[in-house]
Structures are given as C-alpha cells and as structure tokens.
Nucleic acid binder design. Structure first.
Length: 280
DNA sequence: CTTGTGCCCTGCCAGC
DNA sequence: TGCTGGCAGGGCACAA
C-alpha cells in the first residue's frame, strides 16, 4: 500500500522521467476512477491532450500533476495503485485504469487492482479542497513533537482525545501521509503501545513519536519504499524496505531489539503489530 | 464537533 | 480439483 515514502519515491521518479514530454493522447479506461462530479470518459483527454507535465508534487499520499496549461491532475493510489512508465507497445495490464501517451514513444499507465484509488481534474486557479484538509507532513522541516499536539487535543479547546494513538496516526486531517505500516513502525521506535489512549501521552512521548516518524519515513524513502504485495515503482520494480521493518507483518517473529515474539492486534478495524516488551 | 460502521473492489487462502 | 466464504484496507458517506 503506497504511503508517504512510496508516493514520494514515485513522485521523484516521475519528475525525472515524464516532465515536458508532449502528451499525444490520454485515455480513460475505467471511467469510475475519475471521481469529480461532471467528469466523464472524455474529461481526461480534454484536460491532457496536447499538454505536458511541468512538475509533480506530493501532498500526504496524494500526487499532484501540474500541467503546462495551468490545469492539475490529482491522484491517489489507494491500496493497490501504481504508475508505470513504459514503451508504448508494452503489453496491457488486466487492471489498467488510464493511459497517457507521450510524443517520445513511451506511455504512463495508471493500474489499480482494487480500484480504491482515484483521479481528479482541476482547472487553473481552482481550489483543491482535498489538499487543504490535510494535516502536517511529517517530512516537512517544521515537524516535531509540538506538531503532533492536534493528535492528543480535540480541535476546539483543551479536551483530550481518548482514542488509540494508532488510530489517530492514520487520520490524514491530523497527520498527512502515514498509513498502517509506518504507524506501527513509528510506535515501535517511540516505545509506545498502539492501543494506548492519546489522552495518556506526555510531551516526551510526542517528541519520541515525532522523531520515530521522521526516522522510519526517511529511511524507508532511502530504500525506495516498502513492498508487502502490491507497491511498485515507476519502473514496475518493488521497494526494498520490507526486510528492514521492525514489526509490520512480523507476527510471531522475534523483535529485532529484544527477541520477544511480535504480536498482532486489531485496533479500529486495522491490523496493528507491536512488541509487547519494547512498547508500553 | 467526535466517533463508529459499512461500503467500495479484487486477489488470495483456508476449508470442505 | 474446484468452489465458497472470509479477509484485507484508505477514504468516504452516513449515522448516532
């Protein structure tokens, strides 16, 4: 599942490979992937044909493609989405959702098995509400323990949140880009039990949690992201961070720090992994 | 406002 | 062997 490091990996690769290439044709194959009202099968071609991408940006787990027309294409990869840049005659994937053909004889495929992902088109100057609602980005320079305070205090006032800290880490309006894998990993690095109520966290816990988030996201990025099953880079190759995970998907395996078997629990309907000895 | 639930969708796997 | 049911999950709509 593409989270912050995986999306950042893709964005960097796209910026190296597809900028300023003239788009000869864009085809929407799965019309239901284009989510905004009024969008139909022809909308993608209408927005992209004859243009070129100026640059691609990441906001949390979203990719924002800037067109030289001033228009923008917002993409989310959901659970199983990927962008693959390949020669125009490369075989078609069974789960192809859209294609962008370039004048250099290559194409960019958007492929998504479960179709939890989405594309949205925006005109020049149009506001993108999806992005303005996102919380702080854990790789931004200003990110620290203080930036995590919205996780433990309700939006208006001093009332403390009672929910499990793991659940709050997944809330994109509080913290943008963290998903199930890195929430588990960061809580391990911070030594915090994932079911612990946010109300019981202290300033020192938030400081360790912020440091843990930065560390795990930064190192995952250096390894091109984590592939559990579906994530692929733009060249269709997997990321290399899976072997370095501390707890995620390691039920029963030895903790890398104390050898205690890693446990799996359900928190807020999600599978969460932790070391019962290292995390309190 | 907060919090919880079910839905979207397909591949995979256990069980018969 | 081949079918079936359950499970997985990010984001969103909706309910309480």
């Amino acid at each position: 599942m593409p989270e912050l490091p995986e999306v950042e990996t893709i964005v960097r690769e796209l910026n190296q490979q597809i900028l300023r290439l003239k788009i000869t044709e864009a085809i929407l194959i799965r019309a239901d992937m284009l989510k905004r009202t009024g969008a139909d099968q022809r909308s993608l071609a209408a927005a992209l044909d004859g243009c070129a991408f100026d640059y691609v940006e990441r906001f949390g787990k979203y990719l924002l493609f800037h067109l030289d027309s001033g228009g923008k294409m917002l993409a989310h990869l959901g659970m199983t989405g990927k962008f693959v840049y390949c020669r125009a005659d490369h075989p078609l994937d069974k789960h192809l959702c859209s294609q962008v053909f370039f004048a250099n004889g290559w194409r960019l495929d958007h492929i998504d098995v479960r179709r939890f992902g989405r594309l949205e088109l925006y005109d020049q100057g149009e506001e993108i509400p999806t992005l303005t609602q996102l919380g702080v980005d854990p790789l931004s320079s200003s990110f620290n323990g203080k930036a995590l305070k919205p996780l433990i205090y309700a939006r208006n006032g001093k009332k403390r949140r009672q929910r499990a800290i793991h659940t709050l880490l997944l809330d994109q309006s509080l913290l943008a880009g963290v998903g199930n894998i890195y929430a588990s990993e960061a809580l391990f690095l911070a030594g915090i039990q994932p079911e612990k109520s946010a109300a019981r966290l202290k300033t020192a816990d938030l400081k360790r949690l912020a440091a843990g988030l930065r560390e795990i996201l930064q190192s995952a990025l250096e390894y091109g992201g984590t592939t559990v099953s579906d994530f692929r880079r733009v060249d269709d190759k997997p990321g290399n961070f899976r072997d370095r995970l501390y707890v995620y998907d390691r039920t029963g395996e030895a903790c890398r720090r104390c050898q205690t078997p890693i446990q799996r629990v359900r928190v807020g309907g999600r599978s969460v992994f932790f070391c019962p000895k290292c995390q309190k």
